[in-house]
Amino acid sequence: MKAPLGLAAAVVAAAALPLLGSDYAVGIGLSLAMWVALTQSWVLISGMAGYVSLGHVVFYGTGAYVMVLAWQQYPPWLAVLAGGIAAGVLALAIGWPVLRVRGPSFVILTFGVAELVKYVVVNVEGALGRFGRVLFGGPDLQTLYWAMLGLAVAASVLTYVVRRSRFGGGLIAIREDEDAAEAVGIPAAKLKLAAFALSAVIPGMVGAIMVMRSTYFEPLQVFSPVVSFTIVTMAVIGGSDDAPGPLFGAAFLVVLAETLWSTLPEAYMIAQGALLIAFVLFAPDGIHGRLTARRARSG
C-alpha cells in the first residue's frame, strides 16, 4: 500500500504547485506533465507492442491544429476533446494499412507520415493566407497546468492498467514473438491497431493544451520531429516496459534541460545524444529496468 499512497501524495503535491510556487516553477511542472503524458502514451504501442513510432508528434500537432481551427468558435475544453479524438482517428487511418505488415516499415512510415502531415498543414495554412496564428484570451497558466497534470495522471494510470490487463499481455506477446502470438490465437493486427489509436488520443489533447500555452501556432514548430525524438529518448532513458519508466525518463530529461539549457544549450543537445547512446548500449531497459533488476537481485 506504500507505493499507491506515496503516488497519491505526489499527485496532491503537484496539484498544489500553482498555489505555492512561482510561474517559473509552474511552467516547468507543465513541461514535465506534458512529457509524462506523451511518453506514457508512446509506451502503449512502442514499449509494449514493440512497434516504435518515430512520428508521435503528428498526434500532438493534430490536436494543436484542431484547437487552432476551433479557436473562439467552440469552448476550449471541447476543442481539447476534439483534438484527442482527431488524433485517435488519424492513428486508425495510418495504422489500418501499416500495422498489417511487420518490422521496420512501421518505424519509417510513422516518421514519413508525420513529415507529410506537417507540410500538408503548412500548405493549407499558406493557401488560407495564414502564416502563423496567434491565440489570445486562452485559459491562464494554472488552469492549463491542472489540465495537463490530469492528462499526465490519466496517461500513467492507462499504461499501468493496460500493462496488467489481458490486452497488455497480448501486446507484450506480440513484441516477444508475433508469429507465436498469432499461433496461439492473439489477434495481433487488431491489438496493434487498438494500441496505436489509444497511444494517439492523449497526445492529441496535450497538443491542444500546449498551443494555448504558447499562444502561437506555426506548423513547422508544432510538428517538429524533435518532439518525437525527445519522447523516444525519455522512454529509452526511463524504461518503456511499464508506467514508472516514463516518469523517470521525463523527470530526468526535464531537470537536465532546465539546468543545462539556460546556460549551455549546445551542451544540452550533446548530453541528450550521449545519454541516449549510453542507455541503449549499457542499460537498454532504462532507469526503471535497472532499479527493478537491482531489487530482484537483493530481494
Binding site: E182, A183, G185, P187
Partner: peptide, 20 residues
C-alpha cells in the same frame, strides 16, 4: 486470420518452439 483459426480449433505449435 490465424488467430480466428485457433478459435475455430486449428492450432499451430511453431518450429523452434517460440515460447514467450
Amino acid at each position: 486470420a490465424a488467430w480466428d483459426r485457433v478459435a475455430a480449433g486449428l492450432a499451430l505449435v511453431p518450429e523452434g518452439r517460440q515460447v514467450f
